[in-house]
Design a protein around this nucleic acid. Structure first.
Lengths: 193, 193
DNA sequence: ACCGTGGGTTGACTCCGAGTACACCAGGCC
DNA sequence: GGCCTGGTGTACTCGGAGTCAACCCACGGT
């Protein structure tokens, strides 16, 4: 059944619970109950709850990034401009899900606001990785100023997530996507499709 | 010196601490130490920590909203379109401050994700109030679809806040404001300034 | 056959934050 | 004088994080 190692199961279960209820709101015991392990055993895998949180963020970082890029590359075919726009299709799908509870990494940033906090650093790293990918895509799309376009797109992405999260606006991705398409076209005016 | 009532001082101190460190991360004892009051006295003013949090959010709601609208009315003169744009000047000033830690209400939403939670409701109320004000402004500005324009502006506002909060992007308000001005002009194309 | 190691168990313990219970005290108000 | 409001102090429960000591069992290496 569960072929995964205990460490992997801990990361999976903890990630799900943290996402659903928040990091501080979830007790380690809840995680352990669901994994079926005792406290002592847990502390042989992780030094602390914070350590677990960092590990969760790191594992989801690469996982999520790969999923996103795969989706965008598939949906946007070979066209970098369409790939950029496809981010908002991805968001739209995500926003339709009832389990949506915002972005795990943005949530981590607000729960651990101190910049020296390892958790904060791990969460920021994900944003940086995504921003780097978007900037690169903006470059190959032929944007005059890839950094500027990427900043705008990142702002729209985080804005859409926060809007869906806040007022429960299910159409936030469509709203943001519409704006994004205009910005992308304007920034790449010289490059023919 | 402190002419305020104890309840007011509790709201003030708690609000500051919650904003700086997060709601769950701040213990009631820290608040009480700073106010100079004992636990028993505290519980004669508020039923619980959650009750305190709700009260803080409610008091900041009207407070902040009034400040925002006053700024926008001052800076935007009588022109509704310029008043809408002025929101981003306000954000820009805010984002320059080193104490910036995101939006208290957005933070509350991520720390208390359950929709039935009174804290969650109180935080959502603030967003609704702001959205209502923006929609009204969009109407008097002559937007063809005030709700749509307001949704776009709200998305840009929350996006800017989240971007500043995440990567520490100090220019997020300028980025969002530039986009907003384009959207506002497009949505009010028929109405002459 | 033997030993070490990794992953696991139980149970009792500390520390800290939230919240409660009880007894007491000052001042204003009518 | 009596009562309500806003305080004080101490001592308590309860739950979550994290520690500690002792033990178990399956494994791979020599």
């Amino acid at each position: 059944m569960t072929a995964a190692t205990t460490r992997e199961r801990l990361l999976g279960v903890a990630g799900d619970l943290f996402y659903e209820h928040g990091f501080q709101a979830v007790g380690i015991d809840q995680v352990l109950d669901r994994v079926g392990i005792t406290k002592t055993a847990f502390y042989k895998h992780f030094e602390s709850k914070d350590d677990l949180i960092v590990a969760v963020l790191q594992s989801r970082d690469t996982q999520d990034l790969n999923e996103w890029l795969a989706f965008v590359r598939f949906k946007g075919a070979q066209d970098a401009r369409r790939q950029l726009a496809a981010f908002f299709d991805l968001l739209d799908e995500w926003f339709r899900k009832p389990e949506f509870r915002g972005c795990l990494f943005l949530n981590a940033l607000t729960e651990f606001p101190s910049e020296n906090d390892p958790i904060n650093k791990a969460a920021r790293a994900h944003g940086d990785h995504l921003a780097r990918a978007v900037t690169q895509l903006a470059g190959t799309a032929g944007a005059r100023d890839p950094d500027a376009l990427a900043a705008q797109i990142m702002l729209l992405i985080t804005g859409a997530i926060a809007s869906r999260h806040r007022a429960g606006d299910h159409d936030a991705a469509k709203t943001a996507g519409g704006v994004a398409r205009v910005l992308i076209d304007a920034a790449c005016a010289d490059a023919a499709a």
